[in-house]
């Protein structure tokens, strides 16, 4: 069986209506994501990395170019392209379990199986004990775990993550990184991970794409063929030079400061 989840972004540009005519948010960009790969997209804020992600998610329509998933065009949001938002986007009127069930509803499962599968998804992110709690009773890290469980429950071929851990503290982030890699290795969706944190990109991805200032385009593409779990110290020989280069690309004038 051929692996699915092949994303092709070909010469895609995106414009928004501005006060004085259209504003280019993304210059023509080409990006191919191999099935089951983990790509990090990094760039300065406002460079269009989230815009590109929103286009693949089907939330915005490109002004030119084409986006396809396994050969068919993306014309709107669809369940095989899952999205994890920085603000979690959990429904506050549902419990953690209810949020996961929401993703499973479209499968038309019998009631008992729906319940079992939703519980299993929460167990995978170690939240079975909090299944009956509402999102507002959970910490930021727990909320994002519910969101990850919810998105994986609907069985996406592609997973788009827009700075998913940006609002979390450093300790929680480390836990979330490990959890994400574990679940991803089990489900093997094609991941596009938008971040502005260089270290996060280096620790997680098979490939790091660096974008330029607005209107964005992809400047450099670093393949990272290193075993996981990674650490900057243990794999310093490979990672640190790349890290220096990326920081230099992002901040050409002041190479040692980081936003």
């Amino acid at each position: 069986m051929a692996m699915s989840g092949h994303v092709r972004v070909d010469q895609v540009s995106i414009t928004f209506k501005g006060k004085e005519g259209p504003v280019t948010a993304l210059a023509p960009t080409t990006l191919h994501l191999a099935p089951g790969s983990f790509t990090a997209l990094i760039g300065p804020s406002g460079c269009g990395k989230s815009t590109l992600m929103n286009a693949i998610a089907g939330f915005v329509t490109p002004a030119s170019g084409a986006i396809t998933l396994d050969g068919t065009g993306i014309s709107g949001p669809r369940p095989d392209v899952g999205v994890i938002f920085q603000q979690y986007a959990l429904f506050p009127w549902f419990t953690a379990l209810g949020n996961v069930k929401f993703a499973l509803k479209r499968l038309g499962l019998p009631k008992a199986e729906l319940q079992d599968r939703a519980m299993a998804a929460l167990e995978e992110v170690n939240l079975a004990d909090h299944a009956r709690k509402f999102p507002q009773e959970l910490s930021g890290g727990m909320k994002q775990r519910v969101a990850i469980a919810r998105t994986f429950a609907s069985g996406p071929k592609v997973l788009l993550m827009d700075e998913p851990f940006g609002a979390l503290d450093a300790q929680t982030r480390i836990v979330m990184h490990r959890l994400l890699i574990d679940i991803w290795q089990k489900h093997r969706a094609t991941v596009l991970f938008v971040t502005h944190d260089v270290d996060e990109a280096l620790l997680l991805a098979d490939r790091v794409c660096v974008m330029s200032q607005a209107p964005g385009r992809i400047l450099r593409d670093y393949p990272l063929d290193l075993p996981r779990p990674r650490s900057l110290r243990a794999q310093a020989e490979v990672l640190l030079p790349i890290r220096e280069e990326i920081i230099e690309l992002l901040h050409p004038t002041s190479p040692h400061s980081r936003a």
Partner: peptide, 27 residues
Amino acid sequence: EIYLRASRSLGASRQREFLTVVIPAAA
């Protein structure tokens, strides 16, 4: 907007979106 985006990318039909996302969000 984020609720509608989440709902649609999780494969909810328009009717289910209306009943379980739009109405509670406007409640």
